[in-house]
């Protein structure tokens, strides 16, 4: 079932490595020559993926600390090899799957997705990964399954942030089965063609581009097929602010801040806010999943 979706942010828009490593200097130089204006106009139409440096230095991964720089500072302590993923619950072939075996069986694609955090910032990330549907197919989803539950690794000796009860560890997330099987939903294992860095959720993480970033759970060790809606970490911490669905929706505000606009990371001190798109710009692909549902109730 791989290759069910074609990038709308075209591959040629991915900044070549040599350029993105250098882009800060390039932009600074261009500003000196008064050339920035033309670059901005071109970027406004087709969003360009964020620089590797931005994607890997500005992260929310509270197991390593709540500061945006903490994951990049501390996540090197996480052992990601070997890695085993348990798939259980309502599946035909439950068990512990070795990451290397999974990788040998999956088709890796590049998916360039918008990424919208619930905190109202956003990026564009060129992920590498495989469709979650293919992984679930490997385990054989049984007829009674309706939901998919996910769990992040919990290793206090490698994760300094879990000393504090910021959330109820381990981090857990969940999707409805149809959301999990949607062609846009992937398990990412790389960024810019390299192995995904630890701070971004190595060795494999969920990416659901039409939902707020916290749904895209990192460093997954367990996937469980269930017939009831699984608990999710942020919903447990604050049910008034974080719902099970958490679809990107500019019309439903977070109780403490507006979701109508977002700021693209990488624009510097004078970056303008941009309007947030319904389902993060993927309404054509996913709005049908929620037909007839009141998105204010099921936020």
């Amino acid at each position: 079932m791989a290759n069910r979706w074609k990038n709308d942010l075209r591959a040629r828009d991915v900044t070549p490595e040599a350029v993105y490593l250098d882009r800060r200097q390039v932009i600074a130089g261009a500003a000196g020559l008064g050339l920035v204006g033309t670059g901005r106009a071109a970027r406004a139409k087709v969003p360009e993926p964020n620089a590797w440096e931005d994607i890997t230095s500005y992260n929310n991964y509270y197991e390593f600390g709540t500061d945006k720089g903490d994951p990049a500072r501390h996540a090197h302590r996480l052992t990601v090899q070997p890695w085993s993923l348990r798939i259980d619950g309502l599946v035909d072939r439950p068990g512990d799957y070795d990451f290397a075996d999974i990788m040998a069986r999956m088709t890796i694609e590049e998916r360039i997705y918008r990424f919208r955090c619930v905190e109202a910032w956003s990026m564009v990330v060129p992920w590498n990964g495989f469709e979650l549907a293919d992984l679930l197919d490997m385990a054989g989803v049984q007829a009674g399954a309706k939901y998919v539950a996910f769990e992040t690794v919990l290793r206090p000796e490698e994760m300094p942030g879990v000393r504090y009860p910021v959330l109820d560890w381990p981090y857990v997330e969940g999707l409805r089965l149809d959301e999990a099987l949607h062609p846009l939903t992937i398990m990412a294992t790389g960024i810019y063609g390299r192995d995904i860095p630890n701070q971004n959720g190595a060795p494999l993480r969920l990416v659901v581009p039409w939902k707020y970033g916290f749904k895209s759970i990192k460093s997954v060790v367990r996937i469980t097929l269930t017939d009831t809606e699984p608990p999710t970490s942020w919903n447990k911490a604050n049910p008034r602010e974080y719902g099970f669905y958490s679809n990107v929706n500019p019309e439903v505000d977070h109780p403490r801040w507006s979701q109508a606009t977002e700021r693209r990371i990488g624009g510097g001190l004078f970056a303008r806010r941009e309007p947030t798109l319904m389902f993060n710009g993927y309404a054509d692909e996913v709005a049908g999943l929620y037909a007839g549902m009141d998105l204010k109730t099921y936020f």
Binding site: R24, E53, S57, Y58, K68, G69, W121, I265, G268, L269
Partner: peptide, 18 residues
């Protein structure tokens, strides 16, 4: 702080950091 924010010293999102 403003100088560092303008020159990348406050990270990828200098506005919130500042």
């Amino acid at each position: 702080l403003i100088y560092r924010g303008a020159t990348g010293g406050l990270g990828a999102e200098p506005i919130k950091a500042l």
